[in-house]
């Protein structure tokens, strides 16, 4: 729709940039906007920085402080997200009422879909773990521990938000050795979310499948849930709508065998053999007399009717 703007893009580059922001069937990776509120504590600052290192090519960090309170007025946040073309955001702030505050959320169609406020109970930064880290931009495994995750709609949304935030990108294939990072989310009885991140070590097991060992590489975060704002069910459902082009429609009577051959059943109408036109021959032609009698018969039949 960018070409339907009043102001036409002046350069080709500008046009491409606008087209890039248009609704697509297969969407781009969601970028994360990382920003700070009026005041931030050291903990929150470190946390934002660590998340940034994990999300590296797919994140944008705003360096200045922003006079924003997302739960009171979400408009400025929406504007910032739209401007920087981000559909996920992490907002850090610190106040007397809500110390070490983190707001995570996501945007659908330039509107905030859901937004969860966390309080940082405990934090151990990435740099506090003195060991070998992982490659940048590797797809992490996500582990959700605990039976609480499906207890309420809010918790389900939080889980979905975490997956959205950390899953990096949908991939068709992955290098087996490239599975080297795991983020675990543990939800306890008192609704504390413990986020831990480990490096995966593939050890020999005597079998083809390796034995897994983990070493913690940080950061380690304990979150308590504060305020939440989740989308209505209708909007949430609408946001999950899949384009018709991607829906797989099953073709009837068509199958593929193991060798990749297509097997299909074709239905054909019954053949009318009597009226089949064969080769025309002079000898089989009707004579003038025959034609005449046929015509008369037809006439008589029509008169009777």
């Amino acid at each position: 729709m960018s070409l339907m703007r009043i102001q036409k893009p002046k350069t080709r580059k500008g046009k491409v940039a606008l087209l890039e922001r248009e609704p697509k069937v297969i969407e781009n990776i969601k970028n994360v906007l990382i920003l700070e509120g009026r005041k931030v504590s050291v903990t929150v600052k470190e946390l934002l920085k660590d998340i940034c290192t994990f999300k590296k090519p797919n994140c944008k960090t705003l360096s200045r402080n922003n006079d924003i309170t997302p739960f009171e007025d979400q408009n400025p946040l929406e504007i910032l997200a739209k401007k920087s073309d981000c559909h996920l955001f992490i907002f850090g702030s610190h106040s007397k009422k809500r110390p070490d505050n983190i707001v995570m959320g996501r945007v659908y169609d330039d509107q905030i879909l859901d937004m969860i406020e966390f309080g940082v109970k405990q934090y151990k930064a990435l740099k506090d773990f003195k060991n070998e880290k992982i490659d940048v931009n590797c797809k992490p495994c996500l582990v959700f521990n605990g039976d609480q995750w499906s207890k309420s709609e809010e918790l389900r949304r939080i889980k979905s938000l975490f997956v959205d935030m950390f899953h990096v990108e949908d991939v068709e294939s992955i290098r087996l050795q490239g599975i080297e990072h795991v983020i675990s989310f543990t939800l306890t009885e008192d609704l504390t979310i413990m986020i831990r991140s480990y490096k995966i070590l593939l050890k020999k097991s005597g079998l083809q499948t390796p034995r897994i060992e983990l070493t913690e590489i940080g950061p380690s975060i304990d979150f308590s849930i504060r305020r939440t704002k989740i989308a209505s069910k209708d909007l949430y459902k609408l946001a999950h709508k899949k384009p018709a082009e991607l829906k797989v429609t099953k073709k009837k009577n068509v199958s593929r065998d193991a060798l990749g051959n297509v097997n299909a059943r074709v239905h054909i109408d019954k053949q009318v053999i009597n009226k089949l036109q064969l080769r025309k021959m002079k000898g089989l032609k009707k004579t003038a007399e025959e034609k005449k009698t046929a015509r008369q018969l037809k006439k008589a039949a029509s008169k009777e009717n």
Binding site: C141, V143, F144, N145, G146, I174, V182, I212, L214, E216
Partner: peptide
């Protein structure tokens, strides 16, 4: 999505020895 959700409830060990418990649990799931 390289994702696993474990609906099993925790044992008492979580409160006593949190870090190692989570690590072992995660290891099993991975």
């Amino acid at each position: 999505r390289l994702m696993i959700s474990d609906p099993n409830s925790f044992t008492e060990e979580l409160k006593e020895n949190t870090e190692t418990y989570i690590q072992n649990l995660t290891r099993d799931n991975v």
